[in-house]
Amino acid sequence: MIKRALAGAFPALVIGVGGLVLWELSLLVINPDGFLLPRPTEIFEAFTEHFDAIWSATINTGYIVVTGLIVGVILGVVWSLLVSRFRIADETLTPLAIALNAIPIIALAPIFNAWYGLLSPTSNQAIVVLLVFFPVFINTTKGLTSVGATKIELMDSYAASKWEITRMIRIPNAMPLFFTALKIASSLAVIGAIVAEYFGGSQDTLGQFIVQNAASGRYTNAWAAVVAASAMGITLYLVSGGFERVATPWRPDVDVVG
């Protein structure tokens, strides 16, 4: 299993390492001053030099991302369970969800800062929750409602209740789409948290670290924080993929991308 995972990761490793080497070498040739784009080795130096600051910023941002992600996912799932189960919920909550999604959510960041206090992480979490909510809601609802007619008729022929149909048919049917949504949402959560942090909220975060270093021209430090943020995004994605494998054992073994 581990061996297979390693074998699966091999092409990605080659591309990643190759890309870094190419990046390093081409910059050495065309842009030796490293003014606009630092070389990977420089970023790595900055990373080790500011490790403590970046680490604690990553922890704080990670907290915002993970809590926002959890709340957003729960909200999206509960919302879609209601919508798929009760017509009245479908007629009211679906348009509301669509309306919420039509708001350019990032634009709310400064407003949320005013609501929750400039230094509170709550405003950042709220942005993450809103961003995460919609893809989870849309995909899960699709999964809960797109059950073949034959399957529903079969359950009716066994005199199954609505709740039994939801629990035994609709929910498992929604699993693959839910996990697709979770993967999208985990990346969105990182993006949302960092952009929200640009505008304020919690201090000592990756967003703030990037803004402050960029403002004072220390772009290499900013890049080091971007690397940390990417690592967070990848970790969340892989964790989502891991949950997916455990929760949907009936699906053919596909790569994490699947």
Binding site: T150, E153, L154, S157, A159, M168, I169, P172, T248, W250
Partner: peptide, 28 residues
């Protein structure tokens, strides 16, 4: 129907792909 007096089978098997063969048979 409520007394589960009949069993039904369709053209498409209508098996539940998330259940093993045994679990499918056990569903009713």
């Amino acid at each position: 129907r409520l007394d589960r007096d009949y069993g039904m089978a369709f053209q498409t098997s209508g098996l539940f792909e998330w259940r093993t063969v045994t679990q499918n048979i056990e569903l009713p």
